[in-house]
């Protein structure tokens, strides 16, 4: 029993790490540009399938590095062509546009790679269990947790110490002033969008290794990411991180007793948070 609970907690932590990685990207874009990027799951799928296409040429490690970068590049193009036109307009329009994009990306991957689940090969060095008593602790899972941790730390370091990061944080608080101070807000928003999409691509590669490749891989992960943001509090990146891990673990623990309630659980948690603390766990008062 202890092992079962431990297994599910660990599993939940991994799933939560995905949610967090994806939600952090969503959060970045939402905070700076006021765009709810519905297509985030689509970009995640693009990252996963690109990695699948690159593995025969570059191997797993090469694909892990290159695929998120290509996804981010793709995101920059989309931002430049479509999303940029909608900044400052009613959020309704960016919602609908990214919604349409999500459809197109999901269907596009289905068109190119087919609807069936594709096997995603991970290196042998990562796929064996580390210890026989903790059978669930494969190298890949541990590696994933480490990589997500590293990515999150890197993200927070970028936001805290680089010029770009400081500008993003400043822009989140008051974009107009940042613009008046001579920062090119267009470029700032583009780079910020690219950064967010990079995280989606990275999550995509990792998710593919764990869940296998399916066109719906992104749309299954996007709703929990929304919940993570809401629970953590809109506007707070640490909140988003905590929110993601929290719902991951919570749904993992619930799986032990009520497997079929594991998805509904996170929405119940969201309801509770909204009831007790409407701005979310780490949200600022009065911002939304």
């Amino acid at each position: 029993m202890t092992q079962l609970i431990l297994y599910n907690v660990f599993n939940g932590l991994i799933v939560g790490a995905f949610y967090a990685l994806m939600a952090l990207g969503l959060s970045l874009i939402l905070n700076l540009s006021g765009v709810i990027n519905f297509a985030h799951g689509g970009f995640l799928a693009v990252g996963a399938y690109l990695a699948f296409a690159l593995i025969p040429y570059l191997g797993f490690w090469g694909a892990l590095v290159i695929s998120p970068l290509l996804t981010a590049l793709f995101g920059l193009v989309i931002e430049r062509l479509l999303i940029r036109r909608l900044y400052g307009r009613d959020p309704l329009y960016s919602l609908l546009l990214t919604f349409g994009l999500a459809f197109m990306l999901e269907d596009g991957t289905r068109f190119i790679w087919g609807p069936q689940t594709l096997p995603f090969s991970i290196p042998d060095s990562l796929s064996s269990p580390l210890s026989s008593s903790f059978f669930f602790l494969t190298g890949y899972r541990l590696f994933m947790v480490l990589l997500v941790t590293a990515a999150v730390i890197a993200l927070f370091l970028i936001l805290s110490y680089t010029r770009l990061g400081v500008r993003i944080r400043a822009g989140t608080l008051d974009l107009e002033t940042v613009s008046v101070l001579g920062v090119n807000v267009r470029i700032l928003r583009s780079l910020n969008f690219g950064l967010g999409i990079y995280l989606a691509g990275l999550a995509g590669v990792l998710a593919a290794g764990m869940l296998g490749l399916q066109p719906t891989i992104g749309s299954d992960l996007i709703m929990p990411s929304f919940v993570a943001i809401i629970i953590g509090g809109l506007g707070s990146l640490p909140g988003t991180l905590v929110g993601g891990l929290l719902i991951g673990v919570a749904s993992g623990v619930v799986t032990v007793w009520f497997p079929s309630a594991s998805e509904a659980m996170i929405y119940v948690m969201m309801g509770l948070v909204l009831l007790v603390r409407p701005r979310g766990l780490f949200g600022e008062e009065g911002r939304f």
């Binding site: 546009l97 919604f99 349409g100 994009l101 459809f103 197109m104 999901e106 269907d107 289905r110």
Partner: peptide, 11 residues
């Protein structure tokens, strides 16, 4: 591929 068309329609 009607999903793509609907998506394009949204855009």
């Amino acid at each position: 591929n009607w999903m793509s068309f609907i998506g394009l329609f949204f855009v």
